[in-house]
């Protein structure tokens, strides 16, 4: 089954973190995944975690410039969730899965490998951010995540001028880099 223009727009919007689109996709697909997980030895929380992880994969793919979605969002999400849940069950040595007759499954193994890599990087960055402490963390986030300019940052953090803030930001960045790459190279 092909993909409609509407779905393409929704898919792009997910990558831009647009709330309406996310809510729409959530509404249309959560029920199916919840049913699938809960009827296969999962809990409500498992269903939520699996679904949100699949949404995360969708988000990553949407951001990836060379990726093109060739099936419906529903099919993609279901395939990812199915794979993720199967893996989790195997991990917990509970392989009694009721195989459902859902012929709309696309191969997602490679996508999930990418996802795992990105998740690892995210976690390393999160740990590094947790370790640099305040005000470094807020300073770096204000500049690189919230894209505030140095004047605003100087005002907010109480530095006398933008140069002082710049100096401090630089020191923080060097520390963050050190922490990040120390972990990153270990992987």
């Amino acid at each position: 089954m092909g993909i409609t223009e509407q779905e393409k727009i929704a898919f792009k919007a997910i990558g831009n973190n647009e709330k309406e689109a996310i809510e729409l996709v959530y509404k249309e697909n959560y029920g199916l995944i919840q049913h699938f997980v809960v009827y296969n030895n999962g809990t409500e929380d498992d269903a939520r975690d699996i679904f949100q992880e699949a949404m995360m994969v969708l988000y990553e793919k949407s951001k990836q410039p060379d990726f093109e979605l060739t099936c419906q969002i529903k099919t993609y999400l279901y395939s990812v969730c199915r794979r993720l849940w199967l893996k989790k069950l195997q991990h917990a040595r509970r392989i009694e899965m009721q195989i459902e007759n859902f012929d709309n499954i696309v191969p997602v193994e490679e996508d999930l490998e990418d996802h795992e890599k990105l998740t690892k990087q995210y976690l390393i960055m999160r740990t590094a951010m947790g370790k640099i402490g305040e005000p470094c963390k807020s300073l770096i986030e204000a500049f690189y995540v919230h894209h505030k300019n140095m004047q605003e940052i100087a005002g907010f953090f109480g530095y006398t001028n933008a140069d002082n803030a710049k100096n401090q930001k630089y020191k923080c960045l060097v520390r963050l880099k050190k922490l990040f790459f120390a972990q990153y190279k270990n992987q």
Binding site: N17, Y26, Y59, L118, M125
Partner: peptide, 25 residues
């Protein structure tokens, strides 16, 4: 490295959107 930081921020925001959406629904 800067891409990593920005991606970290984006992912965090996306996760919080997902969380909020789930809560609202």
């Amino acid at each position: 490295f800067i891409e990593q930081i920005e991606r970290y921020g984006d992912v965090r925001q996306f996760k919080s959107t997902l969380y909020d959406t789930h809560q609202t629904l």
